[in-house]
Structures are given as structure tokens and as C-alpha cells.
């Protein structure tokens, strides 16, 4: 169509065309969203600095694990604070309903949004690894860098699953934002001590098998493949289980409209 005076037609769009249009719009929105950019980069860099600069940082684990923890923090920030906020806001405003009346399959709407979050996580990881290399002189093997990025893709499912569960179980945008903040810090804080006996071995065990602890262990294993162990495999399995449970809850109860 070039003008409303043209005769009616009825072409069915291609899936690739739909995904291209959605991805272009979602990436534009992400780049334009200053809050999302800050949430993606600032928390992991601050934590990285705090862990290496603080005198007691060494008690939180070896340097590789501390970098892994910072990346985990970044993934959690993007998924639990960033992703949930945009989904809740667009749902409340009716953006999803407008998209759903187009021929775009509903899964493409979500896949596009998740892809944008995943790319943000990968960019954040590269920035954190660069900061660790430049400031803390922590460099990895080339294969370990690649494996770390693969592990980030895998780990993203855990926290995006948590975010999806929040928007699935809660309708109100304000409540989602509030609960997101409430969930985010304890969830992450628990994982921070996955390789530290500061609070005793029982707490360490709980921490190690919490969502953030499992992700940190997995990322730590990917950053140092020579030390990949049965515990890393266990963390991988735990991550899969968390992803399935959280995403299952989020998808099962998600509603496209708040009305």
C-alpha cells in the first residue's frame, strides 16, 4: 500500500520480515532507554570494583569467581529490573494488544524482547571482562572467553525466567517494580556467598545452590575450563531446573493485557 486510495489486498507477511521489524524496534527502544543502559552496566562494574578494591573482597572467592559474581549481578539486573519493567509498562499501556492484532505470532513479540535482553547481557559481559582485564589484570584463554559468552546465554534463562514469573504472577506495574526490587537483592545477595564461608558452611551450601549461586558457579567454570568439575555440571543442571520452573510459571500465568 502506498495510499489509502489503493485497492484492498491481503498479503501474509513472512516470519523473517516480522522478526526483523520487531527486533529493529526493540533494539531502538533499548538503546534509547537510558535507565536500561545504566541498569545493564553500572551494577556489575560497581560490584567488580567493590570486590577487588575492598580489603575483604578476597574472602568472597578467587578472582575468577568474583568476576563471575559481577556478571551474575549484571544478568540479574537486566532481567529482573529491566526486562520486567518494560514488559509491565507495555502491557499496562496496551502495546502488546496493539501488536497482537497484527499477523505477528505472539511468540515473536516475546522472542524479540528476550533477544534484546540477551544482547544487553552479552555486551555487559564483554564490558565486565574488559574491565577485569584492564583494571585487575585478569585475562582468560580465548576459548574461555567464548565459553563464558555461551554460559551467559545459558545463564540468562534463569533470571529472565524469574522476570517472566514476576510479570506472569503480578499484573500491576507498580507492584511488579516493587516486588522486583525486593526479590532482586536477596536473590543476588544469596548467590554472592556461594564460594565463601563467612557465614558458615550451611549458608555457603544454600548460597551455592541458589539461582545466583548456580549461575556464578557455572560462569566461573566457563571462565576457567581447566577447573570444570562435577560441581560445575551440578550448577548447569540446577540452572536448567530453575529456568524451566521460573519460565514455566511465567508463561503459564502470563496475560497480555491488564484488563
Amino acid at each position: 500500500m502506498r495510499s489509502p486510495t489503493a485497492a484492498p489486498s491481503a498479503r501474509v507477511p513472512t516470519l523473517s520480515g516480522i522478526l526483523t521489524a520487531l527486533l529493529r524496534a526493540d533494539f531502538t527502544l533499548q538503546l534509547r532507554n537510558g535507565r536500561a543502559l545504566v541498569l545493564a552496566l553500572l551494577p556489575p562494574l560497581v560490584l567488580l570494583y567493590a570486590q577487588f578494591a575492598g580489603k575483604r573482597g578476597v574472602q568472597l572467592g578467587d578472582p575468577v569467581f568474583r568476576v563471575a559474581t559481577s556478571i551474575t549481578f549484571g544478568i540479574a539486573s537486566i532481567a529482573i529490573l529491566g526486562y520486567t519493567a518494560t514488559v509491565a509498562k507495555d502491557r499496562e499501556k496496551g502495546v502488546f494488544q496493539r501488536l497482537r492484532v497484527t499477523p505477528a505470532p505472539t511468540w515473536t513479540i516475546m522472542v524479540s524482547r528476550l533477544a534484546v535482553q540477551l544482547v544487553s547481557m552479552l555486551v555487559m559481559t564483554v564490558v565486565v571482562l574488559l574491565a577485569a582485564a584492564v583494571v585487575e589484570k585478569l585475562s582468560l584463554d580465548p576459548a574461555a572467553y567464548l565459553l563464558t559468552l555461551l554460559a551467559v546465554i545459558f545463564s540468562s534463562a534463569v533470571f529472565l525466567g524469574v522476570g517472566q514469573a514476576l510479570v506472569g504472577l503480578i499484573k500491576s506495574t507498580d507492584t511488579i517494580n516493587a516486588v522486583g526490587r525486593l526479590v532482586y537483592l536477596p536473590l543476588f545477595g544469596l548467590g554472592l556467598f556461594a564460594h565463601s564461608e563467612i557465614f558458615g558452611t550451611t549458608f555457603e551450601t544454600i548460597s551455592r545452590w541458589s539461582p545466583a549461586g548456580a549461575v556464578s558457579t557455572l560462569l566461573g567454570g566457563a571462565m576457567h575450563p581447566a577447573a570444570w568439575s562435577a560441581e560445575t555440571w551440578g550448577a548447569l543442571l540446577a540452572s536448567v531446573l530453575y529456568s524451566v520452573v521460573f519460565a514455566g510459571v511465567g508463561i503459564r500465568w502470563f496475560q497480555w493485557s491488564t484488563r
Binding site: 501474509v12 507477511p13 520480515g17 526483523t20 521489524a21 520487531l22 499477523p103 505477528a104
Partner: peptide, 13 residues
């Protein structure tokens, strides 16, 4: 950008 998005969703380049 909105027009471009929806044109894409309907397969109208």
C-alpha cells in the same frame, strides 16, 4: 519508526 514497525509486521516494505 512506529509506521516502519507496523509496515514490517504487515509485510509492506
Amino acid at each position: 519508526e512506529i509506521v516502519r514497525l507496523y509496515a514490517g509486521l504487515y509485510g509492506v516494505p
